[in-house]
Simulated assay, not measured.
Amino acid sequence: MKLLNKNLWIVVSLTFPAFAQAQLHNHPDLPKSKHETVVIAHRGNHVNVPENTLASTREAINCGADYVEVDLRTTKDGHLIALHDAKVDRTTNGAGKVADMSWAEVAELQVFNRNKRTHRIPEFKEVLALCKGKINIYLDFKDADVEETWKQIKAAGMEHQIVIYINSEEQYHKWREVAPRVPLMASLPKEVTNEEQLRSFISRIYVDVLDNVTTPELVEAARIKNVFVWLDVQNPAEGPASWNEALRKGVHGLQTDKPADLVAYMRDHL
C-alpha cells in the first residue's frame, strides 16, 4: 500500500471548498459488521484457494469475516477486474501487464492454485454480486476509473457495503468529487509521528479509517476524531501472539491472511 503524499493535507485545505470540508467533518457510517473488532480477509480467504478469486471471496464469506479485501485494476478495454499485481505473471499462467491486455485475453488465463481446480481472474461486477448482503468489501483502489467503479457499485446496490482504500492524492480528490459520502481509508504519511501531527492530518483529510497507526496513543487520538484504525497483521508468523499485540493497541480491525482462524480465536477468547 502506498503512503499518501506528505503535502496532501496542505493541498486539500487550499483547494477543497469550505462547505464541502464542513460536510465531511461528519463522517459517513461504516458498513455494519458482525464483530466489534472487524476481521478483514486479505485478498479473500486464500488459505486453500487462490487470492482475489471468487473462490477466495466465498471462503471469506463462509468463515464469517466482516470484509473481503479486493484489489481493483483495469484492462486496456476498460473492464474492472480483481487483481493485486500490475502484471499477471505471479498468479496466472500468462505474462504481461493487465493494462496492456483486453478482457478477452485476461478471461482466458488460469489462476495458479494448489487444489488443481481451474480458477480465473474475476470481473469486479462478479465480486460485487457475490458479496451483496453477505460480506463487506475493502476495495484497494489500485488502478481504475472512479466514475465507472462507483457506477458498478451503485448498480450492484453495494453503496453501503464498501470502504475504498485510496493510494494517491489524485484518487482522494476524485472520490470526494464523485462519491463524497463513501467511506475512505488511507495510510498516514510517514512524516506523521505524533498526536499533534495526526490531529492536523485528520482535520484536513476526511478519511474514516487509517491502516498504519501503530501506537496506543495515536490510535486513541484517531478514535477521538471518529477515525478507526484497521491494522495489517498478515505475515509469515501471524497468529494469536501478533493478533494480541495489535489488539492491545486498541485498534478497531485486523486485516489477516488467516481469517477463519482469527474469527475462531476472537469467538473463543474475546
Rank of each mutant, 00 (worst) to 15 (best):
R181Y: 09
I162E: 02
K116L: 09
L262N: 05
E51N: 11
Q171D: 03
A20E: 13
N115S: 12
V213W: 04
P183G: 05
L254V: 13
V213L: 02
D268V: 10
V11Y: 13
A82C: 14
K87P: 03
P122V: 08
A186S: 10
H119Y: 15
K225W: 06
W243R: 04
K97Y: 14
T75Y: 05
H46V: 05
S33W: 07
D208Y: 10
I10W: 09
L14Q: 11
Q21A: 07
V182Q: 05
A82Y: 01
P180Y: 10
L270P: 04
P183E: 01
I164V: 15
K142D: 02
V209K: 00
L8H: 03
A107D: 08
R120N: 11
N212E: 12
K34M: 07
I162Y: 06
Q161S: 13
N115A: 03
N45Y: 07
A144S: 04
I137L: 12
P236M: 02
C63I: 03
I121N: 02
E245H: 08
M1H: 15
E170M: 07
K142Y: 07
Y265L: 11
A221Q: 00
A237Y: 10
L198R: 00
L109G: 10
C131K: 03
R117L: 14
E217L: 11
K2N: 15
I202L: 15
E195K: 07
H46M: 06
K174A: 12
V192L: 04
P236V: 03
V127E: 15
H252M: 08
V178W: 09
T37P: 06
K154S: 13
L14I: 07
E170N: 11
Q255N: 12
I164N: 08
G253P: 01
T214L: 08
N212H: 04
K6H: 09
V49G: 07
E108K: 15
L109W: 07
K97E: 15
Q110C: 09
T37I: 15
R120D: 10
S242R: 06
H84K: 13
N194P: 06
E123K: 15
P180F: 11
W150Y: 10
K125G: 02
N212R: 04
T37Y: 11
N194K: 05
A241M: 05
W150P: 05
V213P: 07
R90I: 09
N7V: 09
A86M: 11
Y265P: 11
L231P: 04
V213N: 03
E36V: 02
V38K: 03
P28N: 12
D208K: 02
L270C: 11
T91W: 06
N115D: 15
T193W: 01
T57D: 00
R199I: 12
E238D: 09
E191Y: 00
E196M: 06
H25F: 12
H42E: 00
T193K: 11
Q197K: 10
N115M: 01
K134S: 03
W9D: 01
G157I: 08
P259N: 13
M101A: 12
V98Y: 15
I224F: 04
P17H: 00
N113V: 05
P240F: 03
H25S: 09
L128H: 00
T57A: 13
T149H: 04
E195R: 05
G157H: 02
F112H: 14
V163R: 02
E59C: 10
H27T: 12
L128V: 01
K2Q: 15
K225V: 05
R114C: 08
T15K: 12
L80G: 12
